[in-house]
């Protein structure tokens, strides 16, 4: 089963991210690894797109292609109408990694100003933007702490603040809450949604949690491994306003079921080989 992305209803605005027939092959000593195979996907401005699938399905690789951290072997991809490389030079996106990746010798505030320093903001503007970004993730007052003085969840929030600080339109998040416990994760999911509503950014979010994907996204892209490919792209029918207990509603469970089916299809394919 191969479902290409549904056509956009908004014909006037070009997609923020658009991938056509994207292939990526890693050459390793064990032979070629087909990380991405014929990926077609359009992401519209303001979308919250989750990528879900088992490990090796290429979801992180796809995110890294958008970020110009990996080069596709074949096919084309545009980010904000241009190549990922140019988009990176234009600082079109903020990237949040699986780990907070804060520099341990910098205080939280100085970690948030790191991209601003590199991008040439004035010191006053750096301070101002860092304060604003830290407030957005509920870390106002923690700027003077060193990373190790904060909990894992707070560190990851600081890294989100760092990605927000220079106000890029796209936020790329690679399993940002994967290493955190359930309670902290719920809380951060809620905060992320609020943040998304406030900033109207386009968010690409990699996860391996079905409830997380369904709770957060306007669209859920289901992927499967060997070769890494898109097996389903599900438009969420949930309203934009989502309290945590929306996860108990039949609508939510129905979407979750469809994601689960999509994942199973991918696996059946694999077992059949």
């Amino acid at each position: 089963m191969r479902t290409s992305a549904p056509k956009s209803f908004n014909l006037t605005a070009p997609p923020v991210i658009s991938a056509q027939n994207l292939d990526l092959v890693f050459k390793t000593s064990d032979g070629d690894v087909h990380a991405l195979s014929d990926v077609n996907l359009d992401i519209q401005k303001g979308d919250f797109v989750s990528f879900i699938g088992p490990s090796g399905c290429g979801k992180t690789t796809f995110l890294r292609v958008i970020a110009d951290l990996e080069q596709p072997t074949r096919g084309s991809i545009t980010v904000q109408g241009t190549t990922p490389h140019k988009a990176r030079l234009d600082r079109a996106y903020g990237y949040v990694f699986q780990q907070p990746a804060l520099y341990p010798w910098r205080k939280i505030e100085d970690n948030v100003t790191l991209p601003l320093e590199i991008m040439g903001y004035t010191t006053a503007e750096q301070r101002e933007r860092a304060a604003k970004a830290l407030e957005l993730v509920d870390l106002a007052g923690f700027g003077k702490k060193f990373p190790w003085q904060l909990s894992g969840g707070m560190q990851q929030r600081a890294s989100i603040a760092r990605a927000l600080a220079f106000d890029a339109d796209i936020l790329l998040m690679d399993e940002p809450f994967g290493a955190l416990d359930e309670i902290v994760r719920d809380h951060l999911n809620e905060q992320l949604l609020a943040l998304w509503a406030r900033t109207e950014k386009t968010i690409c979010f990699v996860t391996h949690s079905i409830p997380e994907a369904v709770y957060l996204s306007t669209r859920i892209v289901v992927m499967s491994p060997r070769p890494g490919r898109v097996t389903d792209a599900i438009e969420s029918t949930l309203p934009k306003e989502r309290p945590l207990d929306i996860r108990e509603t039949p609508e939510f469970l129905e979407i979750a079921q469809r994601v689960r089916d999509g994942l199973r299809t991918g696996h059946a394919y694999e077992e059949g080989v």
Binding site: A67, D68, Y95, A101, Y103, L114
Partner: peptide, 26 residues
Amino acid sequence: PEAMHLDLMHTYNASRSEIFWKLRLP
């Protein structure tokens, strides 16, 4: 420096000298 710390610098399009002073040296 870990790969992730270096990737972060690449996402900012940091120059080699910025990577040196802000990441490698510390």
